[in-house]
Amino acid sequence: MFGSALRIVKSREEAEDIVHDCFIKGFEKIHQIDDDANLGAWLKRIVINKSLDVVRHKKKMIWVEETLLLEQENILIEDDIVPTISVEFVKECIHKLKEKYSIILVLYMIEEYNHREIGALLDLKESTVRNQYKRGKEQLLALLKNKEE
């Protein structure tokens, strides 16, 4: 949960605060979840929502709906990377991305949300999420390629 918050807000202190707050909120509202519900997943969802709120309010960030169609939809992206690349370096590169891209990449690739779910979380159309994911991935690959070169 701490990792999820950290990947979104990119600040250890803020991530700690978020996890603490969410645990307290979780304790207070624990009666609202069904007996057979996954407590861990439920708490993680609270943490991710809270982290996104923090990004929205503290960093005054807004996700803008895109009216453009997937103009590059059919263009194939060269997304092969060398297997020897380190996890730490990939993390570092994700961290360097603009938040609007890094968050979508993190939610999709690490937290395993699909585009529709991410759209619901960020109040965006699924197509917008797809576009931004694609651009974010391109930028990440570009950063990774620089290292390889």
Binding site: F2, G3, L6, R7, R12, E16, V19, D79, D80, I81, V82, P83, I85, V87, V90, K91, M109, I110, K137, L140, L141, L144
Partner: peptide
Amino acid sequence: MKLEEFIQKNKASFREEKMPN
């Protein structure tokens, strides 16, 4: 190796962040 494949393979490492004591 595809980027997504790489992340999938190393998911545990991507998620290993721990709260400080």
